[in-house]
Design a protein around this nucleic acid. Structure first.
Lengths: 232, 232
DNA sequence: TCCGCTTTGTTGGAAAACCAACGTATTTAT
DNA sequence: ATAAATACGTTGGTTTTCCAACAAAGCGGA
């Protein structure tokens, strides 16, 4: 376990936990560190959600298969990230996807039941772990909601405005950089790149926005043509 | 506090917690029960996220205001629901929306810090509360992800197929009822009602689905034309 | 500098979604 | 039972998006 101490410092789940406490706590949680070769299955779709996974090294793919046998890559996660934590915390009888090592990887598995059951040693680290876990899930929740509010717009233009507004708000300044190139932005907004590019030009011509490369400026905001509030 | 015992039984956050324990625990958490008149502000946008709210009676609106002063109704929540739990668990410095009583309401506020700090009495209820909270957030997370995977489809048809597939999977049977009328379904999918209706007819004619009122049957599933995996 | 490669913007035709308006069926109220 | 209201399907014209193909601009290496 000692040998992974350097990795631990990059893992948000372990934030604010002193190393000594962390080691004691992981021991108390009976954390397992396992090496998986590329292509090996870490968690099988359909099994009960027991574990929270932490990628200490390597990366994994989350793959969901439907009844007809179609596989879809849900996402790819790099080292430092958690996986299946949502499934475990939701206490699902059956996880809706498999987790597969995308390359040779080192994975730590924590048993959810142990995480949430306060340990008799009353270790502080344990309770911090739960708080960190909760924060991580809650923040993911906020990101999902935000993206949802963008994708619920009907037109390319209003998706762009919704996205740029949130970026502007995040940055605090009127001019800001976005972390995507045009293709990535189009993918993020789920629209077609060239159509989006055309729309951007049109908006620039109309004086709504200005941009150069990845630096944008949102000049005027408008009445929204959004759809009904997300009733999830 | 006693007087609200009947309401408590409908609140998922309190699931599996015996009443006696619950009362003791709420006391130990210093839970406040407050009456708000219609229109009064329960939580102000911009304030630090300290509280988890529980609607014991009445209902609330979540309203977000942007810099230009546009207000948008994010959602409406009925009694029995939680609110602001995501903000609190995400430990935001500043909550991104206000919570306003939509009618005369009875609200319970729990201080997040107290909830996550194990109490010295070591009460079992306390730890159950945390588990329940976590489960609730994680499940919301799953719902959001699922909706996101539907809205990231580009065409009305593939949104319909994505939605009907998940409903089919949920129900377990090939024929299933959906909880929306046509207008609500269109709103949920963020498409136009009449266009959706037309698409449904077309799909029926092609033999992909059949339906009568709210009872649907998904006959064949197809290659997906989905977009890139959600990189949230 | 020149050449190739990638990214971004532009354009035109095809397809899809939007929108309003209307006809029909079903439900609710009187 | 009748009338009114609501929900659903259909249609035609308009707008937007998609798609493929190409042009222009930016970038890196030889």
């Amino acid at each position: 376990m000692q040998q992974y101490l350097t990795q631990f410092s990059h893992i948000l789940l372990f934030e604010h936990i002193p190393q000594a406490d962390l080691l004691r706590s992981l021991n108390c949680l009976n954390a397992q560190v396992i090496h998986f070769e590329k292509g090996n299955i870490i968690l099988h779709q359909g099994e009960p959600a027991r574990f929270i996974g932490i990628i200490l090294d390597g990366s994994v793919n989350i793959i969901s298969s439907d009844i007809s046998g179609n596989h879809t890559l849900v996402t790819h996660l790099q080292h430092g990230n958690l996986f299946a934590e949502t499934f475990a915390c939701a206490e699902l009888d059956s996880i809706p996807a498999s987790v597969i090592a995308a390359e040779d990887s080192v994975i730590m598995l924590l048993e959810y039941k142990r995480v949430i059951t306060g340990c008799r040693n009353g270790c502080m680290a344990h309770s911090l772990l739960v708080t960190n876990l909760m924060r991580s899930i809650a923040r993911k929740n906020l990101r999902l909601s935000q993206k949802l509010s963008i994708l619920s717009r009907r037109s390319t233009r209003s998706k762009l405005i919704a996205y740029l507004s949130t970026e502007k708000q995040k940055s605090g300044t009127s001019r800001f950089m976005i972390p995507y190139d045009r293709q990535e932005l189009a993918d993020f907004l789920c629209v077609e790149r060239s159509a989006m590019s055309a729309e951007l030009s049109k908006m620039k011509k109309e004086g709504i926005i200005s941009f150069r490369k990845n630096e944008f400026e949102l000049l005027a905001v408008h009445q929204d043509d959004g759809c009904a509030p997300p009733s999830v």
